[in-house]
Amino acid sequence: MAKWDFSKIKEWGWKEHPTGGVIPEAATTDSYATGGWRSVRPVLDSGKCVHCYICFIFCPDSSIVIKDGKMTGFNLRHCKGCGICAEVCPAKAVSMMNEAEAQGLEKCHLAGQDLGTEKSA
């Protein structure tokens, strides 16, 4: 839950915005899906994974999910599909899959809209 009430932000006049557009809280991306532009997604082969966390270190979007010391998969709300995890994995445990196919859609590059992503304009 956000600490500031911006529920009416779309109606705010210029005097209501914080000076300089500063958001009065941190790590707000957590509540905002940013993965909607992904065209390929990482898929984990847990049989091959040796839980070395190298993907965790390299992922630019902090989208590697670790639970109880084990690499368990990806946070697809924020994963942008860059493929770095697949590239750096020493066990070749990550492969990249077409996003539309993964969603059971026809192959196309406009996929990713049903992953909690805001449908904006």
Partner: peptide, 25 residues
Amino acid sequence: ENPTTWGAFDGLHGYYFELKRAQAE
């Protein structure tokens, strides 16, 4: 104690105009 976020994207909804107006003031 009061963490903030600076320089965020204006969210496609567009607050740029309002922030520029405030700057002009």
